[in-house]
Simulated scan of single mutants.
Amino acid sequence: MATAENAELVFVPLGGVGEIGMNFALYGYGPANAREWIVVDVGVTFPDASLPGVDLVLPDTRFIEENVANLRGIIITHAHEDHYGALLDTWPKLKAPVW
């Protein structure tokens, strides 16, 4: 667990901010070089007419994939697709406990 010395609480939205859908939020705690992370929701969104032929839009998870060693878990807040819909695609890359 991170210590309080030089620790920060940070919020990194990877999707869903300012829109309905594709909720994917990271919360990190600790110093910048040893931050521990939790993911809150792993949602998808549905495309509009500007994305013809696209069925689902998933968040860009590369940041947490690069920091997966410090990922402590995934929290799903409720069973709407914009909060859990990307779990099947992201869990094999993240392999963290899910609550």
Rank of each mutant, 00 (worst) to 15 (best):
G43I: 08
Y84A: 04
V68L: 04
A79T: 13
G73M: 03
I76Y: 06
N70W: 02
L58A: 04
H80V: 10
A69D: 14
R72H: 13
F63Y: 11
T45Q: 05
S50A: 15
I76M: 00
G73L: 10
N70P: 07
L51Q: 12
A86N: 12
F63T: 05
H83N: 13
H80E: 15
E66R: 04
N67H: 15
E81N: 06
P47V: 04
N67P: 12
E66V: 04
L87T: 00
L58K: 14
L88Q: 15
T45I: 09
T90G: 03
E66G: 07
S50M: 02
D82T: 05
D55K: 07
T77A: 07
G85Q: 05
Y84R: 12
I75M: 08
W91R: 08
R62H: 06
A49D: 09
V57G: 00
I74C: 03
G43N: 00
F46Q: 10
V57L: 15
F46T: 11
L71F: 03
G73A: 08
F63N: 04
P59I: 02
D55W: 02
E81P: 06
L71G: 11
D89M: 06
N67Y: 02
I64Y: 08
V54T: 15
D48L: 07
G85K: 01
E66I: 13
E81M: 13
A86P: 11
T90C: 08
A86C: 03
A49K: 14
V68R: 15
L71K: 03
D60H: 05
E66P: 02
T77W: 00
I64T: 03
L87P: 00
T61V: 15
G73W: 00
D55C: 02
P47Q: 03
L71P: 06
E81Q: 08
H78E: 14
I64R: 01
N70E: 10
L58D: 06
H78W: 14
V54Y: 06
L58R: 11
V57R: 13
A79D: 12
T61Q: 01
G73P: 12
G43P: 00
W91G: 01
V44W: 05
